[in-house]
Computed example of a mutant assay.
Amino acid sequence: MNLFDLSGKVALITGATHGLGLAMAEGIGSAGAELAITSTTPSKLDEALEYYRSKGFKAEGYLFDVTNQTEAAKQVALIEEKHGKIDILVNNAGIIKRVLAIDMPVEDFRQVIDVDLVGPFIMSQLVAKGMITRKSGKIINICSMMSELGRDNVSAYAAAKGGLKMLTRNLATEWAKHNIQVNGIGPGYFATSQTKPIRVDGNPFNEFIINRTPTGRWGNPEDLAGTAIFLSSEASNFVNGQIIYVDGGILATIGKPSNE
């Protein structure tokens, strides 16, 4: 089990104040890593830090927008100074705007691309400099099933996540020689506060997801913890440029098998 031990490691996880980001950070913290989490909302950051510390994790918070290159550079330098290094970067911060493509303002499209694709590029570029010097590092990009599939209302999000998938593969190719592994996690449909309104009996989308997923349920946030730990640890040292889809089997099938 030492392969999965993250003791002595420092993990920078963007947007880790709630939902899937919090679940992955909790998993990485439970494996022994020191946490540096980011947010753009002071109250959410304080609440998350209180939660992590109540679990016994060593955690610090940093307020900045990952799309602001100047501010991000200052904060990454501060994190490296305070924690000594950054061993693991999880590019989790992201947004989605559910608008039909025909109606979507261009500025909204650009904003989604900026947060979901340019932000991870900025953070990876900044953090990789120290990783290259140390000849060691793990970068995990949070992709999506929309990296593979189309769907109405999410054209900007799908474009960004598809781009993030290819950014993952290109950074892995460039930085592998420095012993840096760059991989992605593609979550399926998870039970979070954002999906709570549609996860009710009788809601057509709720029934669709349950029937479309071979596992027959929504994912629980903690279902992502194991994959996050694996990609952060020495167990994944020869895994590079891959996207691991944690989706209950959705992408493996054209439909949930019948009971017959």
Rank of each mutant, 00 (worst) to 15 (best):
A228F: 00
L231P: 03
V182Y: 01
T195A: 07
D201K: 14
S147P: 05
N170L: 12
I210P: 04
M166Y: 10
D223N: 06
A176T: 10
N206E: 10
G163Q: 07
G188C: 07
K177P: 00
G184M: 03
I229T: 04
G162H: 05
F230C: 05
F208T: 15
I210S: 08
A156D: 09
F230E: 02
H178L: 07
N153G: 04
A176V: 12
S147E: 11
D223M: 03
G186A: 15
S233P: 10
Y157T: 01
L231T: 05
L167D: 00
I185N: 00
K165G: 05
W175I: 09
N220A: 14
E207C: 11
F190Q: 01
N211I: 13
A156I: 10
A191D: 10
K165N: 05
S232Q: 04
G202E: 09
H178S: 13
W218G: 07
N170V: 11
W175Y: 13
L224N: 04
I229A: 06
A156F: 01
F190T: 04
S193D: 15
R151F: 14
F208M: 15
M166N: 14
R151S: 15
E234K: 12
Y157Q: 03
T173E: 10
F205R: 11
V154L: 10
G188L: 02
S232F: 03
N179W: 07
A158S: 15
A191S: 15
S193K: 12
Y189P: 02
D201A: 15
P204K: 12
N220D: 14
A160L: 02
S233T: 09
S147N: 05
V154H: 04
L149I: 13
M166V: 11
E234M: 14
S147Y: 03
V182F: 03
G163N: 06
N183V: 01
E174T: 08
G219T: 06
A172V: 01
N220E: 15
G216Q: 10
G219I: 03
N211E: 15
A191M: 07
N183S: 02
L167F: 06
N211G: 13
G186D: 05
I185D: 01
I209R: 03
P197A: 05
S193R: 13
L164H: 00
N206A: 12
E234L: 11
N179P: 06
T213K: 05
P187L: 06
S233A: 11
N170H: 11
N211V: 09
M146Q: 15
I209F: 11
G188K: 01
A225W: 02
A191I: 02
S155M: 13
K161M: 08
N220G: 09
L149E: 14
S233C: 08
